[in-house]
Amino acid sequence: MRDKAKYTDEELIVLFQKGEERAYLELVHRYKDRLTNFVFRFVGSREMAEDIVQDTFLKLYTSSHMYKEIARFSTWIYTIAGNLAKTELRKRKRRKIYSIHDMGIDEKEFEIPSDTYNPERETRTAYQEKEIQTAISRLPEQFKTAIILRDIQELSYEEISKIVGVPVGTVKSRINRGRQKLQELLKELKDK
């Protein structure tokens, strides 16, 4: 295998399908942080996020044959992670182990990763990180996905469209409505 950095994601997954385990490890290395950030914003817990991302990579390991070269690898892996995160959230809500909606706004606690916490950054922005995380968690699922992928992960409309499986126009509409809803929620939180 030549220098790993020279391979595209799509080439790496094809190599892994042929049995090259180092290609798998390179894909894990490239995507573990991006996916952890995405899933963390979705579920609000770092531990749960890591668990889900590990399950995503385990799925990649066991079902790599499901990947077809017509799709971009990034959209494929984001779709798997997003689906697993949604499933996990629904499961937890059903079991009443972790229910955001059962709690009042003041009771809601989200982890704020403290290792790189920067108070200066908080003062430079209009909102506190904790408020934003709380507001994101209260967004309807489809708006939440669109906002995280666009405004936090900074993916293009086209990529989001492929990940969530809806036309670009629908993605734009969800982003627009999601942002407005997020603003309303943040205003509510500030007024409390």
Partner: peptide
């Protein structure tokens, strides 16, 4: 709002991530 979302700190995988995987 968008500025605040872009400024959210990036959460990375822990050091033990790959070993656990």
């Amino acid at each position: 709002l968008l500025n605040a979302l872009h400024m959210l700190q990036k959460v990375s995988a822990s050091d033990s991530f790959e070993a656990e995987l």
